[in-house]
Nucleic acid binder design. Structure first.
Lengths: 203, 203
DNA sequence: TTCATATTGATACCTGGTGCCAAATATGGA
DNA sequence: TCCATATTTGGCACCAGGTATCAATATGAA
């Protein structure tokens, strides 16, 4: 029965569309040397939508305000949080975080994870980084999972500044260490801000 | 002649499509209470492409590997660069960078601009942030344009560590100040990396 | 009224498909 | 070899969301 050619074509078709979603069925006929009906049967079996649907999905994804604003979110996934005490977050170094030629993470991403966590761990309506003293112990590389641990060293309880120490590890190797001073305020005091902010660090 | 209704409709049409590019002409007829031909004449005059073209453009923009990985790029636009001496970059605080309730920029974005610039200003194949001592003088707010100025204080010429001082201003107010220590290396020395990286900070 | 601009209608045609049915063409096994 | 099944191809009607073009009406100002 030799089903392989068909399966191979399916693989090839999937690959082609994945690497260039802008291909029409007609263009695919030229690439795969089969009729346009076959292409369409194949797409049907593989549940690959037509060109226009693919473009629409891409447009929607890029238009989705949540997805299109990844920077807005807390960097890293917070897996443990004891307010005013400690917190842990995970962050995987992906393609978009590294220098492409070396696979080493750009420093601000590692910093962003630590900073997000330092702010999140403070139990107050407003929490803003005031200053930080940081060290990149060794580079974090593509694919590595960074575990950041934050400890509140002096909270000042209700107002003023809190000191938060953050250590980031890959496995048992420390890659980053930082001492953060975080402004905290329940009302519109401290710095020049108003509105509750600390809460949105926990979303 | 009362041309206003037409111009108003044009304005309204532009606004509607801008805020929802997924509208078909037929949906627009319902919103603007004119015939579909009028909608199409209007689009023609305003040079607004048809729905499918709009979706395709959006898909292409989001598919562009450079644009689709905004985190990968240097944060901020580098407007002046004298290698091993100084550099200036611009960065506008946008919706996606702030705490939504207060409109204050998350610290790591301001840091990212400074860090990107500190690394970019180093004229070497590899440049990685080793440590930094930073202060957030006052919060940067939505809509503000941050101007970061970096000065290389001690370059160590060929290898080792360089000190870079970065000051970020909004207008003439300083919002951030940081002292960066940047590893530099032409070969695979210094830290544990290889491959040329400094070059890609200038792309 | 008359003239110019705006708007609407109508029709043919386009791309990139879907859906369905039938025919042609492998392909493999008894 | 022949048959059954799988696979591929062809053909036709139809669809959305348009473009292009020509004609028919408003509408409003001089």
């Amino acid at each position: 029965m030799e089903r392989l050619p068909k399966r191979q074509r399916h693989q090839e078709l999937s690959r082609l569309i994945e690497e260039n979603p802008f291909l029409t069925d007609r263009e695919l006929t030229r690439l795969l040397k089969v009729s346009i009906q076959t292409i369409r049967l194949d797409r049907l079996e593989l549940a690959i939508p037509e060109l226009r649907e693919r473009l629409k999905m891409m447009a929607e994804r890029s238009y989705d305000p949540v997805r299109s604003l990844p920077l807005h979110e807390v960097i890293g996934e917070i897996v443990d949080l004891q307010l005013d005490k400690s917190g842990i977050s995970l962050f995987e170094i992906r393609e978009e975080h590294v220098f492409s030629r070396s696979g080493i993470a750009r420093g601000h991403h590692v910093f962003a994870q630590a900073n997000s966590l330092a702010v999140a761990v403070i139990n107050d309506e407003i929490a803003l980084t005031a200053s930080a003293d940081i060290r990149f112990i060794r580079p974090a590389r593509l694919g590595e999972k960074c575990i950041a641990k934050a400890y509140v060293r002096s909270s000042g309880s209700q107002k003023g500044k809190a000191k938060v120490e953050v250590f980031t590890y890959v496995g048992d190797e420390m890659v980053f260490q930082g001492n953060f001073v975080v402004y905290r305020s329940r009302a519109a005091g401290g710095m020049e801000s108003e509105g509750g902010d600390a809460r949105e660090n926990r979303d």
